[in-house]
Design a protein around this nucleic acid. Structure first.
Lengths: 216, 216
DNA sequence: GAATTTTTGTGAATCATTTAACAATAGTCC
DNA sequence: GGACTATTGTTAAATGATTCACAAAAATTC
């Protein structure tokens, strides 16, 4: 089955909302409640679910526990997912310290950096030299990596990750990789995200100014 | 004109690519070169440009300098954009230290936090008490804020930001805000991004396993 | 237990985005 | 300077995503 990223993104959101509902004591939930929780229509919810063979009960909605379980399995949250991180700079370190991951069965098991000053094998999440990444990843058959190195270094780190069998990457370097077919890449470009906000804020302001102008 | 987020996102990418081309000494660039640089078709590039009245020359492509200038203006990069940040935790601090912003005429002018231990007015980007945010933002007529506080605190910070005139938000808290109409919000949900990568990696692996099974 | 209500699930319709097709035109070659 | 080529800009077609409309079924009411 070919599904697009957005659908899976919504599944994650559904899951999160469902957990909130469960913690509030809900036993059942309807597609419109769930939709409202994440900002989509009830039809969207049902369409998404039908794609994965998730079904509810006419008039009875969806059972919270069963739904969560199905989403967990779909999203691979039934077991810990080990992830490595390249680049122990600002963002890299922030991610390592980011608590939410561990609650969510994602574990950054090691960071890697070229800077010898950053190496520290004693940490809960050790920071190891870049050149040990290959062996580490292969030994543990890790499949997912985070790239948080400066863009100059990113392509090389990317190549190394591919070479040692990583097939999914969360990338914070503001660039596009060569040889990126057959790998899953999610790019997070903070600068562009912020630029985007700024554009729309400015556009709104122009809009307002214009309207005022028209009234004057 | 109503444009969607993705188009503006691409404009940012075009701009970045163009700057790279300029630095490489290019004087002109064609839509297919530019498209390839960011991973879209040449038609997409021209369509996007035509939306904003950016035109090139038949057979001659686009002049690098003029194109950059137009994109700069469109994206509000012709002047510094001041931004405040709420939450000086892991991600907040990383953002404050993030060098790329300043090169790109985005300036985080202050961080705000409730934790007294984090307050430091002497820093290049001072960390101030949360309750000073309103006045600060109003005095400087800042329009864009970053939310990097834990999700429990996020709604309140959001309300405060709106109250003091902020109309665009980059949000790192994994949640949806109440009363979010008439504000631009870009959500960055690191957990979901990673979860997404994990899903597709797992899906790929299942795919492979299945195919092998079929062959056996 | 029939009628009514509520909610799911889905095929068709709409809406949005991307790609294809091609005319227009500027430059290049001979 | 006429023929040829490369590239833009745009209209139309195709594809993709979302919403509408409604049938089916379960629960509730009378």
């Amino acid at each position: 089955m070919i599904v697009n990223k957005k659908v899976i993104f919504r599944l994650s959101q559904y899951r999160k909302a469902m957990i909130k509902f469960r913690d509030l004591g809900f036993v059942k939930v309807f597609s419109d409640t769930l939709g409202e929780a994440i900002g989509v229509t009830s039809v969207q919810v049902r369409k998404d679910f039908s794609l994965f063979g998730i079904s509810g009960n006419k008039k009875g909605g969806y059972r919270v526990d069963l739904l969560i379980e199905k989403l967990q399995i779909l999203l691979g949250k039934d077991r810990f997912q080990e992830v490595v991180l390249a680049g122990a700079g600002n963002i890299g370190s922030a991610l390592i310290k980011y608590k939410n991951f561990e609650n969510e069965s994602i574990k950054i098991v090691a960071g890697f950096d070229i800077d010898p000053a950053k190496i520290n094998r004693k940490l809960r999440v050790p920071i190891l030299p870049m050149n040990e990444m290959g062996r580490f990843v292969r030994e543990r058959s890790i499949k997912v990596g985070i790239i948080a190195v400066p863009d100059i270094a990113a392509q090389e780190v990317f190549d190394q990750m591919l070479a040692c069998g990583i097939s999914g990457i969360l990338n914070f370097a503001p660039m596009r990789f060569r040889g990126a077919d057959s790998v899953v890449i999610n790019n997070v470009n903070l600068q562009i995200e912020l630029e985007n906000v700024i554009y729309f804020v400015n556009a709104m302001q122009k809009q307002t100014t214009l309207s005022h102008g028209e009234n004057a």
